[in-house]
Lab assay of single mutants.
Amino acid sequence: GQVNVNNTTYTFPTPKLAKEFAQKAAKKYNLTVHVSGNTVTVK
Rank of each mutant, 00 (worst) to 15 (best):
N30R: 07
V3M: 11
N38S: 08
F21Y: 05
P13R: 10
K43I: 15
E20W: 15
K24E: 08
V40Q: 00
K24R: 14
N7G: 15
N6E: 10
T41H: 07
Y10I: 07
A25I: 15
V33M: 05
S36Y: 09
T32V: 13
V3L: 13
T8M: 11
K43N: 10
F21G: 01
K24P: 00
A22V: 02
K43R: 11
K19Y: 13
K24V: 12
T32E: 11
K24L: 14
T32K: 09
T41S: 05
T39S: 07
V40H: 00
G37K: 04
G37N: 05
V3S: 12
V33L: 06
T11G: 03
K24D: 05
K28W: 14
F12K: 01
N6R: 11
F21A: 03
L31A: 08
V40W: 03
T41R: 04
A25K: 03
T9K: 08
Q2L: 11
N38G: 03
G37D: 04
L17D: 09
A18R: 00
E20D: 08
A22P: 00
A22L: 02
T11V: 14
V40G: 00
L17I: 07
G37P: 00
N7A: 14
K19F: 11
K16I: 09
F12I: 01
K43P: 06
K28S: 05
H34Q: 09
Y10M: 05
N30I: 03
L31D: 03
Y10N: 01
V42W: 05
L31H: 06
Y29N: 06
K19I: 10
V42E: 00
A18H: 00
S36L: 09
S36Q: 11
Q23G: 05
G37F: 04
V40K: 00
T14A: 02
Y29T: 06
A18P: 00
V42S: 01
V40P: 00
K24T: 08
G37S: 03
V35P: 01
T8S: 09
G1L: 11
T32C: 06
N4T: 11
L17G: 04
A25E: 04
A25P: 00
L31Y: 07
T41P: 00
L17A: 13
V33N: 00
G1E: 12
K24Y: 15
N6L: 14
K28A: 06
Q2P: 13
T14P: 01
V42Y: 03
T11D: 04
H34L: 12
Q23E: 15
T9R: 07
V40I: 03
N30C: 04
N30D: 05
G37I: 03
K28T: 05
T14K: 02
A18Q: 00
Y29F: 08
Q2R: 05
Y29G: 07
T9Y: 09
F21T: 01
V33A: 05
N4A: 13
Y29K: 06
N7Q: 15
N4Q: 13
Q23S: 08
G37V: 03
V33Y: 07
T9Q: 06
S36E: 13
Q23H: 09
N30M: 06
H34P: 01
P15N: 11
Y10W: 09
L31K: 04
V35I: 08
V35T: 04
K19D: 06
F12H: 01
K43V: 15
N6H: 15
H34K: 07
H34R: 06
P13F: 05
T8A: 08
K43A: 11
V33P: 03
S36D: 11
N7E: 15
L17Q: 11
N38D: 03
V42T: 03
P13Y: 05
G37M: 04
Y10A: 01
L17V: 05
K19N: 09
G1T: 13
N7I: 15
A25W: 15
V35W: 07
A26H: 09
F21K: 01
Y10R: 02
K28Y: 14
K24Q: 11
N38I: 06
V35F: 03
K16Q: 14
P15F: 10
A25D: 02
V3E: 12
P15Q: 10
G37R: 03
Y29I: 04
T32Q: 10
E20K: 12
F12Y: 02
A25L: 15
T8P: 05
P13W: 05
P15M: 11
Y10F: 10
V5G: 13
G1S: 13
K28H: 10
T39F: 05
V40R: 00
T41E: 05
V42F: 07
V40M: 02
Q23F: 10
G37Q: 04
Q23N: 09
V5M: 12
N38P: 03
G1D: 11
Y10H: 04
T39I: 11
T39Y: 04
A22Q: 02
V42G: 00
P13I: 05
Y10K: 02
N7T: 15
T41M: 07
L17C: 10
P13G: 06
V33F: 08
N30S: 06
K16F: 09
V42P: 00
E20T: 06
P13V: 05
P15D: 10
S36N: 12
K28F: 11
T32Y: 06
N38F: 04
T41F: 08
E20N: 06
K43M: 15
K24F: 13
N38V: 09
F21Q: 01
T11K: 07
A18L: 02
A18D: 01
T41Y: 09
N4R: 05
T14W: 03
V5F: 12
L17E: 12
E20Y: 10
K28V: 09
Y29E: 05
F21L: 01
A25V: 15
T32L: 09
V35N: 02
F21W: 15
T11W: 14
N4E: 10
Q2T: 13
H34A: 08
N7M: 15
K27S: 10
V33H: 01
N6I: 14
Q23K: 14
N6Q: 13
K16N: 08
N30E: 04
N30G: 15
T41W: 07
F12T: 01
E20Q: 12
T32G: 05
S36M: 10
N4M: 11
A18K: 00
V33S: 02
F12A: 01
N4W: 11
G1V: 14
V3D: 11
E20L: 15
V3Y: 07
V5H: 13
V33D: 00
A18V: 02
K16R: 08
T8G: 07
N30K: 08
P13L: 09
K27A: 10
K43Y: 15
G1F: 10
V35M: 04
T9I: 13
T39H: 06
V33W: 03
G1A: 12
K28E: 11
V5L: 12
N30W: 13
N6K: 14
L17K: 09
A18T: 02
L31N: 04
K16H: 10
K27I: 09
V42K: 01
N6D: 09
K28R: 09
S36H: 11
G1Y: 06
K27V: 07
F21S: 01
T9V: 13
A25F: 15
F21E: 01
F21M: 02
A26D: 03
P13K: 13
K27H: 08
V5K: 12
E20R: 12
T41I: 11
Y10T: 02
P13D: 10
G1C: 10
T8Y: 15
G37H: 05
T41G: 02
V3W: 08
K19Q: 14
Q23W: 12
T9D: 03
L31R: 04
A22G: 04
G37C: 03
V3A: 12
E20V: 08
G1P: 13
N38H: 06
T8W: 15
L31G: 05
T9W: 05
K28G: 04
V42I: 15
N7F: 15
P13N: 07
P15T: 10
K43L: 15
K24C: 14
N6A: 12
K27N: 09
T11I: 14
L17M: 12
V5Y: 11
K27G: 06
K16E: 15
Y29V: 05
L17Y: 04
H34M: 13
T41V: 10
N7R: 13
T41K: 04
A26F: 09
N6T: 13
A18W: 01
G1K: 06
T32W: 07
V33G: 01
F21P: 00
Q2D: 11
V42A: 02
T32F: 06
Q2H: 13
N4D: 10
T14D: 06
Q2I: 12
A22Y: 02
E20A: 14
K24H: 12
P15E: 15
N7K: 14
N30H: 12
K27P: 02
Y10P: 00
V33R: 00
P15R: 09
A18G: 01
Y10L: 06
L17R: 07
P15H: 15
A22R: 01
N38M: 06
V35D: 01
H34F: 14
H34Y: 14
T11F: 10
V42R: 01
K16A: 14
Y29W: 13
A26P: 02
K19T: 07
